[in-house]
């Protein structure tokens, strides 16, 4: 449930935030806490088992790859010359 909540917030954020950079923030939310809580729940349901260990491993890889992907997107946007949105500007 908690995981679902954060994923939902993240999706709302992607729609509501004004530009690429701020959307990248919220996308990392879905992965960290959204997937985090979901996978933790899976691990707890399964109980002390090797499958649970694999779930933790899965989480680890998500935690490594997610920021890398977010960084890649943000960097690509930056290199392409996308100007970050600042306060006071009109929403795009």
């Amino acid at each position: 449930m908690v995981g679902l909540f954060f994923t939902l917030v993240s999706a709302a954020g992607v729609i509501r935030l004004p530009d690429v950079f701020s959307r990248a923030h919220t996308a990392s939310q879905a992965d960290t806490l959204g997937a985090g809580f979901a996978l933790a729940a899976v691990a707890l349901t399964i109980g002390w088992d090797s499958t649970a260990a694999k779930t933790v491993l899965l989480l680890f890889f998500i935690f490594v790859t997610n920021p890398t992907a977010a960084h890649a997107i943000a960097r690509a946007a930056y290199e392409e010359g996308v100007e970050p949105w600042t306060k006071g500007e009109e929403r795009r």
Binding site: F21, S22, H25, S28, F63, V64, N66, P67, A70
Partner: peptide
């Protein structure tokens, strides 16, 4: 460090240029 910054919602490392991290 850069990945930890990105992993924390609210900050995204945009570019690592030499020792400077460009963080949004």
């Amino acid at each position: 460090l850069a990945n930890s910054i990105t992993l924390t919602p609210g900050t995204v490392t945009v570019r690592a240029n030499d020792q400077d991290l460009y963080v949004h």
